[in-house]
Design a binder for these strands. Structure first.
Lengths: 238, 238
DNA sequence: AACAAAATTAATCAGCCGATGAATTAATTC
DNA sequence: GAATTAATTCATCGGCTGATTAATTTTGTT
């Protein structure tokens, strides 16, 4: 609401080339306004469920502006995806590096998973609605066959491989096959939670709320760690 | 391929009202041909990524026929979803009922999860490509915010609640909150696997294949059961 | 053989889609 | 203050979309 009003005001009062000092800021403001709106509705309806006209309308911007800033609808989508991917993935790598530096050979499965998850959950809880929209979009893209091409690979794969390496250190006897299968289960659990379909809210009749990170995080870590250990270093055969 | 050739042949040779004995079969043949095609491309591109024209083209059928059999695109989508939901969900309920009848108070977490999963995995492995397309669609819908309304609720909720009840019997001290959160993790793992994005194939560099059910099933059951037990009856606090 | 009913086709509609190019506004530079 | 450049708008294009309607073909009934 506040963002929209701002945008209206700005656009009505000043049009055309902005003052030198403001130029970059103005451009970025408009660009980000478009990206925020696109992010929100892409996350709800997917690429094909969104029209550039709708993005323009909700951002209180002329349709042609979208093509001015982002040549095509596809490039707009990629830009949405990229913007926050760079930020969050750097944080996740950093968190895992820090954790390993601190614990050395004493890394645990729980610790590794927490380092992997926590930056995401932290920003989900404190970063406002934009980040929630973003991760809902990541969740949607992640479970789509046709989607998640280059961008997904280029930015998310290193984070995943960093986690696998950490877990291999925590469980030296684990096979790569078991590690990757287990990671896939972890990834699914996270993806569905990020997507925030709200299905758990209805199923549990309000007992669980999909946005309740403090309830989610410890359970997610405990669940995944127990699963990893059972599959990767369980004594009884599968 | 074979289906398409069949459809071409049939449609070129006979048009119009079919013989009485064949009438129902013919109608169902055409209907199912449309449903199969729709199922396949809906599962890859989602509702908005598919056009009725594309469905018609691939089914070798006139565009208007789609509206003749299924009034709207939306109803076509629902029909795709419903067709197999009735079949598989009956099987899953049956499997869980049978399991409980057999074990009574001795139900285990592993056993409950296996009864819940196995009908799906069985049909995935033996039911041909149609079922794989269907479950990819279920996976897609399940992780979408805007989608999965009535149909999802009406047909899948009973199966889920049946599982929760079984698990509650296996773990009498478990709280409903822990059970629902854990179920959500299980659901995510399954959903991502069903979606068959093939991401694990690439990540693991071919070590894991997303279509390899015999590798998937025992790990999935062991992983989820360990997770459930840790969250729902773990001794150490979360 | 005549008639009715079902399945399928052909032609078309109104509307929205992504995208483009020319015009407009305003600030910067010289 | 004229020329330049950036941001934004306006008007529009060709193409595709979901849907409808009226014909047409085939089949079943009597």
């Amino acid at each position: 609401m506040s963002i929209q009003s701002e945008a209206i005001g700005r656009r009505k009062s000043r049009v055309g080339r902005p003052a030198k000092a403001e130029a970059a800021a103005r451009t970025k403001e408009t660009r980000d306004a478009i990206l925020d709106v696109a992010e929100e509705i892409f996350s709800k309806h997917g690429f094909h469920g969104v029209t550039t006209r709708e993005v323009a309308r909700r951002a209180h911007v002329n349709t042609a502006l979208i093509h001015y800033y982002f040549n095509t609808k596809q490039e707009l989508f990629d830009a949405v995806f990229l913007r926050r991917a760079e930020v969050i993935n750097a944080q996740r790598i950093q968190a895992m590096d820090d954790y390993e530096s601190k614990l050395g050979d004493k890394v645990t499965v729980e610790g590794a998973i927490e380092a992997f998850l926590h930056p995401v959950l932290h920003v989900l809880q404190t970063g406002g609605p934009h980040w929630r929209n973003y991760f809902a979009l990541v969740g949607l893209v992640n479970s789509s066959t046709a989607w998640g091409g280059e961008v997904m690979t280029r930015y998310f794969d290193p984070v995943i491989h960093r986690l696998i390496d950490l877990l291999q250190r925590a469980m030296p006897k684990a096979t790569r096959e078991d590690l990757y299968w287990s990671y896939n289960f972890l990834s699914g659990s996270l993806t569905l939670s990020l997507a925030e379909t709200g299905r758990i809210d209805r199923l549990s009749d309000g007992v669980c709320k999909s946005t309740d990170i403090p309830a989610f995080e410890p359970r997610m870590i405990a669940y995944a760690a127990a699963g990893f250990r059972r599959v990767c270093e369980g004594k009884k055969p599968l």
